[in-house]
Nucleic acid binder design. Structure first.
Lengths: 241, 241
DNA sequence: AATATAGTAATGGTTAAACCATTCTAAAGC
DNA sequence: GCTTTAGAATGGTTTAACCATTACTATATT
């Protein structure tokens, strides 16, 4: 299955071989790698070195490691993986300001909405409609479901990214949404008036996508994201004053 | 300097502590961590576990490890680091098509150019002008410097991203340019006519930025990137036919 | 029979001590 | 003064053992 390891840094060679196998599709998502002690023999190396290699692969997001019997290293799907630690780190440690993120989202999500309007098929529309009615339901149930509403709101944005059909946009926005909740939790005002406004925005957006109106979808999303961002920014100012 | 390690996965705890110190600025870029054997004592763990932690930090791009006396783990700068392996992996293994990347660049670089035109100061303009005359020089020296010309072309694009003043756009575009050369090398036709056209594009773009014409900068860059992409795509088709 | 409980084995996580490989520095020799 | 060589400091690797977690199975209890 694998070559014997060579090179200065043996673990690096092991990483490359396994990565190669995963990315070339020899090892498919969901497959389980042999146990560490067996891999050690296959690569003719020591367990410590092999574990350093697995650590790197885990950090790259290529495998997930579980303990216990029937645990082990499981191959992750290559697509849809987070575009990365690094962007996540930048966001988490706020080297990137809320304003920066907001500006980015306004620009990029506008483009994505335009593409989505151009490319949505019948099934995509159905998904958007389903999310929309979930959102409505949350809103009707009152304050207890507001967090669920916000989650669905995000899902609609990510659905648009998927529908846009470009994995670059999709993975980047996914990374951003995976981390932006840090800001949402702190600065997003939970008021019915605001959430209802959001719902009306989303509804208009879905309709524009459904009717294939690219320019309208673009500007609607831009406005929606922009309004959202200004709200958070105002809230941020008030909290830090 | 550090707490003693705890948690299920000890190396994870070590990673977090060192990462915290780096991102909070306690450990500054260029600083050297103590040798492994000393860190092992500080964290009251074993060298193997400690090395797994260092491997993770290295993979995250937070430290660089060198062998030999006066080697060791050196802290990297947090900013301007690659937005990541993952996007890089997607590009390198061509899970992302040239078409996807092209579409992304057309959209995003257009936005960035608009922002740059709005925000460029005198010094920024000087930098752009300098790059532009370097590019001209390469072009005049003929075919031997064409690769240098392409490099400078990329630098101008990245300069615009920096001038736009949003680290999110900047790091993402940097990651893309760090990897896209794989496509350039294969599919970019080296013809004087094309490079000259590129130079004229760049010149117009710099002038638009200089004069603060945001909309013009936006559409010029979009056209420039678009033309470039169509060329590569045509070349890709011919080569794979 | 259904359900708890305890045992068992497979797997990753950790430790320890030694040795190897690389690289800088300083002493030795010319 | 230059070159060569020896030493030491550092990361890289190996080995062998033990610990911790978890799924499954056999047993005991109801």
């Amino acid at each position: 299955m694998f070559r014997e390891a060579r090179q200065n840094r043996i673990f690096q060679d092991v990483v490359e071989q396994i990565q190669e196998a995963i990315l070339k599709g020899t090892l498919k998502a969901g497959h389980k790698l042999p146990p560490e002690r067996q891999l050690r023999d296959m690569f003719k190396t020591s367990r410590g070195t092999l574990r350093e290699a697995l650590r790197v692969l885990e950090q790259k997001g290529l495998i997930t490691i579980k303990t216990g019997v029937s645990g082990g290293s499981i191959v992750n799907a290559v697509t849809h993986r987070q575009v990365s630690e690094s962007l996540a780190l930048l966001i988490q440690y706020q080297r990137v300001s809320l304003r920066d993120l907001a500006e980015f989202r306004e620009g990029v999500e506008g483009i994505v909405a335009g593409l989505a309007a151009k490319r949505a098929n019948k099934k995509d529309i159905e998904q958007l409609r389903a999310l929309l009615s979930e959102a409505k339901a949350c809103l009707d149930e009152g304050a207890s479901r507001w967090d669920a509403f916000i989650r669905i709101d995000n899902e609609i944005h990510l659905a648009l990214a998927r529908i846009a059909g470009n994995p670059v946009y999709e993975s980047i926005l996914q990374t951003i949404y995976n981390n932006i909740h840090l800001y949402f939790d702190r600065f997003l005002p939970r008021e019915e008036r605001i959430l209802k406004q959001n719902y009306r925005d989303l509804r208009k957006i879905v309709i524009a996508v459904e009717e294939g109106k690219t320019a309208e979808a673009h500007s609607l999303v831009q406005d929606h994201v922009g309004r959202f961002n200004r709200l958070m920014e105002k809230n941020q100012k008030e909290k830090t004053d």
